[in-house]
Deep mutational scan, measured.
Amino acid sequence: MGFKLLSKLLVYLTASIMAIASPLAFSVDSSGEYPTVSEIPVGEVRLYQIADGVWSHIATQSFDGAVYPSNGLIVRDGDELLLIDTAWGAKNTAALLAEIEKQIGLPVTRAVSTHFHDDRVGGVDVLRAAGVATYASPSTRRLAEVEGNEIPTHSLEGLSSSGDAVRFGPVELFYPGAAHSTDNLIVYVPSASVLYGGCAIYELSRTSAGNVADADLAEWPTSIERIQQHYPEAQFVIPGHGLPGGLDLLKHTTNVVKAHTNRSVVE
């Protein structure tokens, strides 16, 4: 069995187990497998329904001669939608809004960016022009300005110390501490036991640490421990890039980060 097929099978099995364990909360999309990078042309966006009122959005972007996937989250909030992270750029984010209108038909009224990198804030200006209120932590807003990236308009308070959590509509926002970046936030959907790890969490097929220019490698494993301790009931975990899975993604990420750190020390 090929690795790609095995990865998709694991996603399907995880979703099936969740649907059985929580039949009222989960209505997993039966329309197909989780979209992969090879299936999404740059400039297009796919939506994948995880649970009743919960979707991931998947886009792709060219970077350094390669094409990478990027995940975000959409959560229903009454007759409105909360968006977590842009679709990595203005063109993708405009396509995301169009796809949401086509498939869901509810307005996106608020959006949260989970850290300051372009795959999370690139497209904020498109959201703002569409009347979406954009939010991020003060740290993310400051770092985005320093980096020359787009800056969300509103500040999220109460997320300055490791372990801080605040309720934001249908989700809980959690600051686990520094990891992929010093400002990275985690998003949890309690009604569906869905954990969105953003770039602080890796997919299972990833074996290298990737972009760690703004990471705190020493603190990252401790931050992941905080996530595990705060959300032990999480059933569906979405990484910032690639295929979702279960809580095993947290341990896998820790292993990859520690291996990278150990290699760096040896070198």
Rank of each mutant, 00 (worst) to 15 (best):
T153Q: 13
H230F: 15
L10F: 03
K258C: 12
V166C: 08
L13V: 13
I100V: 11
R110D: 03
S139G: 07
L243P: 05
V54Y: 04
S27H: 10
A213S: 13
A66M: 13
V194D: 00
S7C: 03
G43R: 09
A215M: 05
V171L: 03
G78A: 11
Q103I: 04
K91Q: 13
Q235Y: 02
A25K: 13
G240N: 02
R76C: 12
P221S: 12
E44P: 06
A94E: 08
K258Y: 10
N149W: 09
I227W: 01
H115A: 01
M18H: 02
A165R: 09
S22G: 09
E172Y: 05
L127G: 01
T86P: 13
L10C: 14
G163T: 07
V75C: 12
V212A: 10
V67S: 05
T109M: 13
I104E: 10
A136S: 13
L185P: 00
A136C: 12
L13P: 05
D52N: 07
R128S: 12
L106M: 07
P152L: 09
S7T: 14
Y175W: 11
S161T: 04
G32P: 15
E39M: 11
L106W: 11
R142Q: 12
A129C: 14
S161V: 08
D183F: 00
G32L: 09
G43D: 06
L73S: 09
A218N: 05
L9W: 07
Y48I: 10
P244I: 06
A66Y: 11
A51F: 13
I100R: 01
S7F: 15
Y175D: 03
S193N: 05
Y135M: 03
P35V: 07
D248I: 04
P232T: 06
L24D: 09
V124S: 08
M1F: 05
D164E: 06
Y231R: 07
E33Y: 03
A90R: 10
S30A: 10
A215W: 07
L195Y: 00
G148P: 13
D77Q: 12
K91T: 05
S62Y: 14
Q228P: 11
V187F: 00
G148A: 14
K102C: 15
G78H: 06
N71V: 11
L249I: 06
W55R: 02
I100E: 02
E225Y: 02
P107G: 10
S264K: 04
S22W: 10
V11R: 13
A209W: 10
H260C: 10
D118F: 07
G2F: 14
D85Q: 00
L159S: 05
A133S: 04
T60I: 03
G53R: 07
F116E: 03
F116Y: 15
Y196D: 03
K4P: 15
V189G: 02
I201G: 01
F63K: 12
E80L: 14
S181V: 08
T153W: 03
L156I: 03
V67E: 09
V37L: 08
A200R: 01
